[in-house]
Simulated scan of single mutants.
Amino acid sequence: MPDDGTRAWTFLSNHGHVLVALSRDPAARIRDIADTVGITERTAQGILRDLEDAGYVSKDKVGRRNLYRLHVDLHLRHPAETETSVRELLAVFD
């Protein structure tokens, strides 16, 4: 992010960044997801809860860790992108 006082923005929301992080490491800890995205652990937990509630992500307990599964055949939520699946979005980052 720029340090020159200009307003910083990105093309993806933090929700999108979390999806990308999980696609790269489905066994990531919340701490790792937060660090990767540049958000707090509490924010990462909230985003994960949003994604789970909407059906984009589910998690399985494996020992003391979570293993996240992305439901990539679901479509994006914004009316301008409803024809695009999560799979198609994530393919950009492969």
Rank of each mutant, 00 (worst) to 15 (best):
G55P: 08
I30F: 03
L89K: 06
R65Q: 10
E88D: 03
V72T: 10
T43N: 11
V72I: 12
V86F: 06
G16F: 06
D53M: 14
T84G: 06
T40C: 05
G16L: 07
A44D: 09
D3G: 12
E83Q: 10
G63W: 02
F93K: 00
E88K: 04
F93N: 03
V57C: 05
A21V: 02
L12D: 09
D50F: 01
I39R: 09
A34D: 07
A91R: 15
E88G: 06
M1G: 12
R7K: 04
A28M: 01
R65S: 11
P79F: 05
A44Y: 06
L90F: 03
R77H: 09
E41F: 05
L89R: 08
K59R: 15
V72H: 09
G55Y: 10
V57L: 01
G5N: 06
G5Q: 01
V62S: 14
W9P: 10
Y68R: 00
R7F: 11
D4M: 11
L51F: 13
Y56T: 09
A34Q: 00
V20K: 07
E52Y: 13
Y56D: 11
K61S: 03
R64N: 14
R7P: 11
V57S: 00
E88I: 02
H15P: 04
E41G: 02
M1R: 10
T36S: 14
A21P: 09
A54D: 15
G46F: 06
S13H: 07
T82H: 15
H78N: 11
F11S: 13
L89M: 10
D73F: 07
N66P: 14
K59V: 10
D3I: 15
A91T: 15
T84A: 12
D3K: 15
I47W: 03
K59P: 08
